[in-house]
Amino acid sequence: MLSSCGSSKEVVYFQDLKPGESEITLPEVQTITVQPEDKISIIVNSRDPQLTNLFNLPYISKQLGNTSQISSSNNQGVSGYTVDAEGNIDFPVLGKVHVAGLKREEIAEHIKNELVTKNLVKDPVVTVEFMNLCVSVMGEVNNPGRFSIDRDQMTILDALSMAGDLTIYGNRQKVLVLRQENGQQRVYGVNLTSGEHVYTSPAYYLQQNDVVYVEPNNVRARQSTVNGNNVRSTSFWISLASLLTSVAILIFN
């Protein structure tokens, strides 16, 4: 009984949602913007490959990334630009380009306009991709780790799905999202058992470097003790019952 996994109210997601009846106004979409220390790839193409090669970094043969969770297949062999502390990158021919706070398509549009305005390329096609942007998922999930951001909007549900969902011991009523904002560490709580709470949370859309932490529930807390023998553990009560039985036998005999 002490090891039971709890009632369905502690396990089932989105308990307040009913098919065909529930409507929730989603928060404003938060598209990921580039920040200092982010790494991005920028590729310029046109009808004149020799001309556009002047604006592309050389290809490299080594694989980017060193963890199995972070996929680099989209950027394999492509050199990238690391955004400096002032939010700039050093782009070939154009020089310093400010990209911090911009979305991918905004960066592409800005560089395209610069190339056309300065009469460097007549018909450029600029592609911008994320390279080292990721989120971390920790705690009671089946596959904790760091996961790459490969889209402009990434939700907490996306991150938990990539981590293999919560284990049966995860506290679905208290999932934490740790985020650095304006030099401060902020912590958001998300209750996965309430659809309205999930979809209206300011942490529904994740940002790069967010940490998602799933707390263990009471069952896991009872199982995980310092020495396996305190008052919250099942083994403690079994040992105590055995001791009392032995004492009783000795007394009555």
Score class of each variant (00 low, 15 high):
residue 1 M to G: 05
residue 2 L to W: 13
residue 2 L to H: 09
residue 5 C to S: 08
residue 5 C to G: 11
residue 6 G to V: 07
residue 7 S to K: 09
residue 9 K to T: 04
residue 11 V to Q: 14
residue 11 V to F: 15
residue 12 V to M: 15
residue 13 Y to H: 12
residue 14 F to C: 02
residue 15 Q to Y: 10
residue 17 L to I: 12
residue 17 L to M: 15
residue 18 K to A: 10
residue 20 G to H: 06
residue 21 E to Y: 01
residue 24 I to G: 05
residue 25 T to N: 12
residue 27 P to I: 00
residue 27 P to W: 00
residue 30 Q to M: 03
residue 32 I to M: 03
residue 33 T to F: 02
residue 34 V to G: 03
residue 38 D to S: 01
residue 41 S to D: 06
residue 42 I to W: 00
residue 46 S to E: 08
residue 51 L to M: 06
residue 51 L to P: 06
residue 52 T to L: 11
residue 53 N to P: 12
residue 54 L to T: 05
residue 55 F to Y: 07
residue 56 N to S: 01
residue 56 N to F: 01
residue 58 P to T: 14
residue 58 P to F: 11
residue 59 Y to V: 14
residue 60 I to V: 15
residue 61 S to T: 04
residue 62 K to M: 07
residue 64 L to V: 08
residue 65 G to S: 04
residue 65 G to T: 01
residue 67 T to I: 02
residue 71 S to G: 10
residue 73 S to Y: 03
residue 74 N to W: 02
residue 78 V to C: 05
residue 79 S to C: 05
residue 82 T to Y: 05
residue 84 D to R: 06
residue 87 G to L: 04
residue 89 I to S: 05
residue 95 G to F: 06
residue 95 G to E: 05
residue 99 V to A: 05
residue 100 A to N: 01
residue 101 G to I: 08
residue 102 L to M: 10
residue 105 E to W: 00
residue 106 E to H: 03
residue 108 A to I: 04
residue 115 L to P: 12
residue 118 K to V: 06
residue 126 V to Q: 07
residue 129 E to V: 03
residue 131 M to F: 03
residue 133 L to N: 06
residue 133 L to P: 00
residue 135 V to G: 00
residue 135 V to D: 01
residue 135 V to P: 00
residue 137 V to P: 00
residue 139 G to L: 03
residue 140 E to D: 11
residue 141 V to N: 15
residue 141 V to D: 08
residue 142 N to I: 09
residue 143 N to C: 02
residue 143 N to F: 02
residue 144 P to W: 15
residue 145 G to H: 04
residue 147 F to N: 01
residue 148 S to H: 00
residue 149 I to L: 01
residue 150 D to Q: 02
residue 152 D to A: 10
residue 155 T to R: 05
residue 159 A to K: 01
residue 161 S to A: 11
residue 162 M to I: 10
residue 162 M to Q: 04
residue 163 A to S: 08
residue 164 G to L: 07
residue 165 D to K: 11
residue 167 T to V: 15
residue 167 T to K: 10
residue 170 G to Y: 15
residue 171 N to T: 15
residue 171 N to P: 14
residue 171 N to L: 11
residue 180 Q to K: 07
residue 184 Q to C: 12
residue 187 V to N: 09
residue 187 V to S: 12
residue 194 S to M: 13
residue 198 V to T: 08
residue 198 V to E: 02
residue 199 Y to V: 06
residue 199 Y to F: 11
residue 203 A to Q: 04
residue 204 Y to R: 05
residue 207 Q to G: 00
residue 208 Q to I: 01
residue 211 V to T: 01
residue 212 V to P: 02
residue 213 Y to E: 13
residue 214 V to C: 09
residue 218 N to T: 10
residue 225 T to E: 12
residue 225 T to K: 10
residue 228 G to Q: 13
residue 229 N to V: 11
residue 229 N to D: 13
residue 230 N to D: 14
residue 230 N to M: 08
residue 230 N to Q: 10
residue 232 R to Q: 09
residue 235 S to D: 13
residue 237 W to K: 13
residue 238 I to T: 12
residue 240 L to K: 13
residue 245 T to A: 09
residue 251 I to P: 14
residue 253 N to S: 07
